[in-house]
């Protein structure tokens, strides 16, 4: 189970890196999105996968019997997902505005623009 997720994380990282190195601005955003997702999945698997053992203290007992699934790792991911959702929403609007301002989907078209004088 873990191995499968690990492979998935690796593939996602590779896809993200590939997309980010393309010249298209839209692909850059897809790359960033996948990078964030794969980082979250990475934390998920690094905090150990323990299927079918929720961290709930059984009736009549005062402590948890290991092994149990660690809820903290998942709480961290939840926070990271919320943050990356907000940031990526902003990034997508930015990409749209950039495309409108530059009229090109090519990252190489950015450089001359950033050298312009303010009008």
């Amino acid at each position: 189970m873990s191995v499968l997720v690990v492979v998935l994380v690796g593939v996602l990282f590779a896809v993200a890196a590939y997309l980010m190195m393309r010249r298209s601005i839209v692909k850059l955003i897809f790359g960033l999105l996948l990078l964030g997702t794969s980082a979250n999945l990475f934390i998920f698997v690094a905090a150990r996968l323990v299927p079918g053992r929720p961290p709930i203290v059984a009736p009549g007992q005062s402590t948890l019997e290991p092994p149990f699934a660690d809820p903290l790792g998942q709480a961290l991911i939840l926070t990271a997902i919320v943050i990356s959702f907000g940031v990526l929403a902003f990034a997508m609007v930015l990409v749209k505005k950039t495309y409108q301002a530059i009229g090109d989907d090519d990252l190489d078209a950015l450089d001359p623009v950033s050298r312009e004088e303010e009008g």
């Binding site: 990078l35 964030g36 902003f90 930015l94 505005k97 950015l110 623009v113 312009e116 009008g119």
Partner: peptide, 17 residues
């Protein structure tokens, strides 16, 4: 502004990585 967009895209993507 046009060049602000270009600058922000560099900044945002690098910092997200």
């Amino acid at each position: 502004e046009r060049r602000q967009m270009a600058g922000a895209l560099h900044y945002v993507s690098y910092n997200l990585v």
